[in-house]
Nucleic acid binder design. Sequence first.
RNA 1: GGCUCGUUCGUCUAGGGGUUAGGACGCCGCCCUCUCAAGGCGGUAACACGGGUUCAAAUCCCGUACGGGCUACCA
Length: 472
Amino acid sequence: MSDIKNPKVRFAPSPTGQLHLGSARTALFNFLYAKHHRGTFYLRIEDTDKARSKQEFVEQICTSMEWLGLKWDGEPLFQSTRLNEYHDVVQTLLENNTAYRCFCSKDVLETARAGGSYQYPGTCRDLSEEDIMMHMNSGKGFVVRLRVPEGETHFDDMIYGTVHVKHDEIDDFIIARSNGNPTYNLVVVVDDHEMEISHVIRGEDHISNTPKQILIYNAMGFTVPEFAHLPMILGPDKKRLSKRHGALGVQQFKDDGYLPDALLNYLALLGWNPGSDDEIFTLDELIASFEMSHVHKKGAVYDEQKLSWISGQHMSRLGTAKILEGIHAINGDWGEGFETQYLYEVLEQLKLRSKSLRDFIDQSSYFFSDPISYDEKSARKNWKDDTTSQIMNDYKKRIDSLELWDADVIEASLRKIAEENNLSAGKLIHPTRLALSGISSGPSLFTLMSILGKEVCIRRLTKALDIFPLES
RNA sequence: GGCUCGUUCGUCUAGGGGUUAGGACGCCGCCCUCUCAAGGCGGUAACACGGGUUCAAAUCCCGUACGGGCUACCA
């Protein structure tokens, strides 16, 4: 495969919705293939469905792709600007007799279909010149159909291998609607040819469109590109992932605080394997190891737990400055009023405990303000009675007198007072943590205290002494 | 219905004639430990089924079953 030179690929979403996980994966594989082989990655907006296409979706798709880091080369191509070209191709096909006008009404065909016939009966396939003129003159509407020849078509899919389809399984399908607009199968071919696409990489749902498109390539005398069909991403019900499976737009992952590299990493592992046991990759690493031959055919079920794990792995490898940048991108207020150095220390502690940027935000409140509520379960367990209060009070006084405020010193003083009272250190540690953070989990207590500072610790202990033990 | 593609632990996957069928997520246990994580160690769990071919089949072939996709004047 290393002899593939400068392939040209494209990602061709239709702007009828935001960028979804499935399309993002298709975009990623196109991107990886292009970059791995030093090729070109184009973006084409398939907006020929006027009724459903919206400008806002075009913007949303581009934004999502930029966020993911899937930068396309050149300017996006909009199909809506190319209607004339499509029209010309239809004319050429009509002229060389590889396509014909069909005057059958929609109703007639639907009735026929309802009767159990699945294929177009070929009514207008061999209309005489006179009949055509007559219909035209009477102002009757028509669609243009491709005249599918006898025989069979096969192609060598890079992932699925050779696929054969007999032509009698293929309808004389419509390439231009009665309103003159071209249909998908035609525009795809015309544009892929125009853009000199060498490798068409798309979802497996297009595998049965491929023979039809090859027929058009042949009818026009165009060179047929290589094809690679990607397996689908499935929901837990094993059906193709869709809106029904919940909010799975790329935008949502961004809002949930996932890192783009983590999402991409996860997506890459859905249907592809790196040929090693490695699982954590940056985008550049994915580009370096991507091989189409390692893409397999089976649909893969989307699993949020694994995404979350991968995300956590990325998080723990990321520098605190990058994390801070990411957090501020989704919440500009976070840590406002505190010095950057302080924020870095906070992030350093939370890194191994966070799967997403949201987790940092959700877990960090006590670094910025005194707890306003306390975990009741922990309070009842760890601060049972006045005995605890007494020792906590002693402990408060003890740390108040500390000259040097660092984790080791703080720890030593706590262990000493525990020993003096013949208690295990935990008997002091747990209530202290509760008093300082309001919860029972988090970073090492002594690190926490050193970060918070003496004054804050004393203040929070004082407040806790007022509150605990709770009334029974 | 027709066509087409697929089927290895619950999930993502490795393995493509001889393997104790490997790894990862999850789950469970242990270790570490001030908690929660992280990390380490261990455990749980799979070749859809039936026929062939072969000394030998998860692996090759044929069926069956099940699942996906397509079968639009959507893309």
